[in-house]
Amino acid sequence: MGRPYWGRGFATEAMRAMIAYGRDELCLSCIWAGHCAGNLASRRVHAACFGALDRY
């Protein structure tokens, strides 16, 4: 994604949509996601979607 779109919540929205699709449409009982340790933006997206609870 280009810099003009960074920090606008698009990645968080996309990840939440993927989680919902996996849970609701594919009936997944577990969804695993990770991020590269040095990528702080991805870390924030991961925290926003999964928080402290890895329940999806």
Rank of each mutant, 00 (worst) to 15 (best):
M1H: 03
M1R: 02
M1K: 03
G2S: 06
G2I: 06
R3E: 14
Y5N: 15
W6I: 07
W6G: 14
G7T: 03
R8N: 14
R8S: 13
R8M: 15
F10P: 01
F10N: 01
A11N: 04
T12W: 00
E13T: 04
A14F: 05
A14I: 07
R16I: 10
R16V: 09
R16Q: 15
A17V: 00
A17F: 02
A17S: 06
A17P: 00
A20N: 08
Y21W: 09
Y21P: 01
R23M: 00
R23G: 00
E25W: 00
L28S: 04
L28G: 01
S29E: 14
C30R: 13
I31H: 00
W32I: 15
A33C: 15
A33F: 03
G34N: 13
C36Y: 11
G38F: 02
N39Q: 07
N39H: 14
N39K: 06
L40R: 07
L40F: 08
L40M: 10
A41H: 11
A41K: 10
A41I: 06
A41S: 14
S42F: 07
S42A: 14
S42G: 10
R43Y: 12
R43H: 14
R44L: 12
R44I: 07
V45S: 01
V45H: 00
H46D: 12
H46A: 12
H46N: 14
A48E: 09
A48W: 02
A48D: 13
C49D: 03
C49Q: 02
C49L: 09
F50P: 05
F50T: 03
F50N: 03
F50L: 10
G51Y: 04
G51K: 07
A52F: 09
L53P: 02
L53N: 10
L53I: 06
D54S: 13
Y56K: 05
Y56M: 09
Y56Q: 09
